[in-house]
């Protein structure tokens, strides 16, 4: 008897599952873009007659992979990404029938270095960071294993505080930017790159961080970095600008090359450690999923992504070329090949 009920209910569930059309937009991807996407989704649901989009995190790479799973209601419509799409993603998409993707740049995000609010002030350069946490550094013209114990060893102008850095783990999009804009730049500035080249070693030697505990990879979110910082008042953490702006009462931000990170200094390009944020739209779903075109138009509108909009309030650095993006989105232009 119970088995019959079971079979009937299972059948009913399956029938309902295949028969139902999705009427909400499905979004997944970068946890950096997630708060911005939820802010827009919320406002979109309030002001339009469409359902509020369902927004998931999961990371940039995972989001792009899901986007490329194929075309159909069972796949997501938009992938949020804090780094640019890769050729491998585009190839993966193409092999699954997703031939056209629209790339939308929503603005810029700054990466900031912050310490406990009651600690001393720091003024860094990329070279300081390289000398503090790289595996091999140049001392007296020779490449040696990193001997630096305190920040004062790295640069006499910095406080004599033990080196302890919480950097994002390698699965984070933030880490990529940190590697390129801070470590690679610092490698070159400090002369280590030249020394590596002279010793006919690979350029990738630059990216190796010391493993003696001075640099700690954080695989969780910024909230984890913050709580680790709370337990270790001596540490310096790497955060997104928007996270810092929501926790200015607990964190003291450091300058980079003498520039204080802010939406203004990032927009002007003075602050060096920043990156563009994107989302990628499956154009085959435009016109199929109700409200998709309206959502992306709304996302890049001045009311949302403009310099006075709620995204900027939350810490997004508005894109100076927003008008071009708006025109591109309105025309539904898919992205060309990566250059």
């Amino acid at each position: 008897m119970s088995k019959r009920i079971l079979a009937v209910s299972a059948l009913a569930i399956l029938a309902a599952g295949t028969a139902q059309a999705r009427d909400n937009i499905a979004i997944a991807g970068s946890s950096t873009v997630l708060p911005y996407a939820t802010i827009v989704a919320e406002a979109f649901g309030e002001n339009f007659d469409f359902p509020t989009p369902v927004v998931e995190g999961g990371g940039s790479g995972a989001g792009r992979k899901k986007l490329c799973e194929g075309v159909g209601e069972n796949t997501i419509d938009i992938a949020n990404s804090s780094s640019r799409i890769k050729q491998s993603d585009i190839d993966n998409c193409a092999s699954n029938g997703v031939s056209e993707i629209m790339e939308v740049r929503i603005g810029y995000d700054g990466i900031v270095f912050a310490s406990d609010v009651n600690g001393p002030e720091f003024a860094f350069t990329p070279a300081d960071w390289y000398n503090a946490i790289a595996a091999k550094v140049v001392v007296d013209g020779k490449l040696v294993d990193n001997p630096n114990k305190t920040w004062a060893d790295v640069n006499p102008e910095l406080p004599a505080q033990d080196i302890l850095a919480f950097v994002p783990g390698t699965k984070h999009g933030t880490r990529e930017v940190f590697d390129v804009k801070v470590i690679e730049a610092g490698c070159e500035e400090s002369g280590a790159l030249e020394a590596f080249m002279a010793a006919s070693m690979e350029e990738s030697e630059c990216m190796k961080l010391r493993t003696d505990g001075a640099s700690v990879d954080i695989d969780g979110d910024y909230t984890e970095t913050l709580s680790r910082l709370d337990a270790n008042k001596n540490a310096i953490g790497v955060f997104g600008l928007s996270f810092y702006e929501n926790n200015t009462d607990k964190l003291r931000v450091a300058t980079m090359n003498g520039v204080v990170p802010s939406t203004e200094s990032i927009a002007s390009g003075e602050y060096p450690v920043s990156r563009p944020l994107y989302f990628y739209v499956k154009t085959a779903h435009l016109g199929v999923i109700p409200g998709l075109q309206e959502y992306i138009d709304f996302f890049v509108s001045d009311d949302m992504a403009g310099p006075d909009g709620p995204l900027a309030d939350y810490g997004l650095v508005s894109d100076p070329e927003l008008a071009a993006t708006q025109a591109m989105v309105a025309a539904g232009t898919p992205m060309g090949p990566l250059n």
């Binding site: 909400n24 997630l34 919320e42 509020t52 998931e56 995190g57």
Partner: peptide, 8 residues
């Protein structure tokens, strides 16, 4: 996917 932001 239950960890999504759902508002409706």
């Amino acid at each position: 996917g239950m960890v999504a932001f759902v508002r409706d």
